[in-house]
Design a protein around this nucleic acid. Structure first.
Lengths: 189, 189
DNA sequence: GTCTATATCAAGATAGAC
DNA sequence: GTCTATCTTGATATAGAC
């Protein structure tokens, strides 16, 4: 095992995430990230030439990871009118703890250009695109999705402390509401 | 009508809000606020000694205003198990345009100390406190509230563009879902 | 009470050594 | 490719005049 000579961007992203999560957005500086990653500020700026690019990479990695999990979980629900919603709920159920991490990334990104939120924007557009307004199941599915997002944001922004039990109860409620509506929806032609 | 000699804090808050909403959080500086308010930087710092205190005042005013409207609207629903939810939905319906304003305040506050979100935190605790988990109406009421919050955040953060029609449709859906559940809930003893 | 002018500070970015 | 040292900028906050 030879001594490492090149900086691994993944490790830098991990360090950046730690800094945000553990010390807050205020202390999320390039210097702090470099220190945490055990590299110099110059070395960090060689990998990510600007702070914006670092934030974008953080956000992108997080969204990709979550998105992939949702896709994977959705496969089990090909019979459902909204497999992605089902996969999303299952993924949210298994994510629990890492919610704070993602939230921190999001907040860090918010401070800078809004265009940086593009990855997250695309995800939500895809999610909301699956619901139509012309069936009860579509409308209630959308409500279920938005309720989970609402709880996520309230929790992420520190506006509502929520125990693990409360979080799971909410996910169950959302799923139940959707399933109730689905049961009432007649089969399509 | 005499020439004004003292600075009106309300006008300063208006100016601060304009700056955030129109030019974005990045350009939300004390200097920009002072310029917009037509006063000097020194004068501004006499009224609000730190930027944090200015942000807190902005947020506080916004939450108070919204909260008061909710209370007022709620009075019409004393027969409902969740009058505050009903008032909240009505208020959200009439707010529409000013959503961006409040969101901007929120985001500006987020950048700084999380303790600053206290006014908003209290509001959400009060709202969520009215729902119990032991009745369908309580659980669905909570979902309705969270769905509206979710849509609000997605919209506020620029993660989902939403037309006025879509917004109203969502509010209608949330209300309908709650009312459906209420209709199914047997009268309490 | 409000203004002008200035001090202070920290962060992102750069240049050049190794 | 990575480091050290430095530059530039822009923002908050202060000091003292009016």
């Amino acid at each position: 095992m030879t001594r490492k000579k090149t900086i691994d961007p993944e490790l830098v992203l991990n360090a950046a995430e730690s800094v945000v999560v553990e010390t807050g957005v205020q202390n999320f500086t390039m210097e702090a990230v470099a220190k945490r990653a055990g590299i110099s500020k110059g070395g960090l700026l060689y990998i990510f030439p600007t702070k914006d690019q670092l934030i974008l990479a953080m956000l992108d990695r997080e969204v990709s990871r979550f998105s992939a999990e949702v896709s994977l979980s959705s496969e089990a629900y090909s019979g459902d009118p909204h497999p992605t919603l089902r996969g999303y709920i299952d993924t949210a159920r298994s994510e629990d703890v890492s919610i704070a991490d993602k939230a921190a990334n999001l907040m860090a990104a918010l401070i800078h250009a809004p265009t940086m939120l593009e990855p997250a924007r695309l995800f939500h557009i895809k999610m909301l695109g699956q619901f139509d307004s012309y069936s009860l199941e579509g409308r209630r599915g959308r409500l279920a999705y938005l309720a989970i997002e609402g709880a996520f944001f309230l929790r992420a922004l520190g506006l509502k402390t929520m125990t693990e039990e409360e979080w799971l109860e909410l996910l169950t409620d959302a799923l139940d509401m959707y399933l109730d509506a689905r049961a009432l929806t007649p089969n399509r032609p």
